[in-house]
């Protein structure tokens, strides 16, 4: 049984000008202990997808279709109480900016043990010792001291370690990390990412890593989902995607990586910007920016094509005339 299986998920936002569909026909799955990357530009719907898995899309948005099977249970059918017993207990989430995700007026210890008190019958003595143990596991020095400190007394990296420790406290089987290192200093980004991966591997925790950086995903995940304007445009094993991207948008993302440009040259970029939800172009949403655009792309939304273990939504998929490009070096972080 898959740990998580999202089938045809659709999220709608009811706005004054009518209904806007923020996510359309999103499907992907995750095995226990597996790592999946969700990539895309800002506005592609990555974070909405993450919140939708926890059934926390905030008003005026709501899940308007599809299923989210977590350990065989459809999360969209659960009562608010049942859903709450899953949040933080079976599925944890890590946010981008640890400055913002920790409450400034409560001490680190209070915020950490809160998860335990919410989901377990546990006295504060036990909760404290569990929290201290976990703080040690995320390599925080002198955990007793940190436990009573306030977020503003810790550095950015230390705060993200606290957040990771909190996510690990309840032995969740799935962690969703929404750009977990973007807000951190470049010097400690790799350190925090390694820590997160190491702990997930150690506890056989599934990880969904949301980022705009295909480079990071290619190094740490096994499979990837590329999103554009609320749709999955390409999905498959990360090796195949990086070596043999079929969708022009994925190719554009790969070309935009700094490693793809020789020093001194301008970085490649995808022309244009992501369309807003209220203004998605007819046909393939990527067509105004696509270098390979055909007449068909402007009229018809492409269906999914399967090539090997990849799934691509592009009329040109499998077309041999695609421009050639150097392969991305795959290296283990």
């Amino acid at each position: 049984m898959s740990l998580l299986e999202v089938r045809n998920l659709e999220v709608t936002f009811a706005s004054r000008g009518g209904k806007l569909i923020a996510l359309r026909d999103i499907s992907f799955s995750l095995e226990p202990g597996e790592r999946l990357g969700i990539v895309g530009e800002s506005g592609a719907g990555k974070s909405v997808a993450a919140f939708a898995i926890l059934n926390l899309v905030s008003r005026p948005g709501y899940i308007s279709g599809g299923e989210i099977l977590f350990e065989g249970q459809d999360l969209t059918q659960l009562s608010p109480q049942e859903m709450r017993s899953i949040r933080g207990n079976r599925i944890s989430m890590i946010f981008q900016d640890p400055m913002m995700t920790l409450n400034p007026v409560l001490s680190v210890g209070v915020q950490m043990t809160e998860v335990l008190h919410a989901h377990r019958e546990i006295n504060s003595e036990e909760a404290r010792s569990r929290a201290l143990q976990t703080l040690t596991r995320v390599h925080i020095s002198s955990p007793e001291k940190r436990f009573d400190q306030y977020p503003h007394e810790l550095s950015g990296g230390m705060r993200q370690r606290v957040v990771i420790a909190t996510a690990l406290l309840t032995e969740s089987s799935l962690i969703i990390a929404d750009e977990p290192t973007t807000a951190l200093d470049v010097t400690i980004q790799a350190e925090i990412m390694d820590l997160l991966l190491e702990l997930c591997e150690l506890n056989n925790v599934g990880l969904i890593l949301i980022t705009h950086d295909l480079g990071v995903i290619s190094q740490v995940t096994q499979r990837a989902v590329v999103m554009y304007a609320g749709r999955v445009v390409e999905a498959g094993p990360i090796r195949d995607i990086v070596r043999d991207a079929q969708h022009p948008y994925t190719q554009g993302l790969i070309d935009a990586l700094p490693q793809q440009t020789s020093p001194g040259k301008r970085l490649n970029q995808i022309q244009g910007v992501m369309p807003s939800l209220s203004n998605i172009p007819k046909g393939c949403p990527f067509n105004p920016r696509c270098p390979l655009v055909m007449d068909e792309c402007r009229t018809r939304v492409p269906a999914y094509t399967r090539i090997g273990s990849m799934r691509i939504a592009c009329h040109a998929a499998g077309n041999t005339q695609r421009r050639s490009r150097p392969h991305l070096e795959l290296s283990k972080a």
């Binding site: 926890l54 949040r87 207990n89 946010f95 995700t101 409450n103 400034p104 007026v105 989901h119 909190t166």
Partner: peptide, 28 residues
């Protein structure tokens, strides 16, 4: 609207707990 509220919702806390324990001290 701040992220720490999202973060505690994700932890699975109830609305009352979020209001009185997390938001109230910030409006003190």
């Amino acid at each position: 609207k701040k992220e720490y509220v999202d973060a505690v919702r994700v932890i699975g806390l109830g609305s009352l707990r979020i209001m009185f324990k997390h938001i109230l001290p910030n409006t003190l």
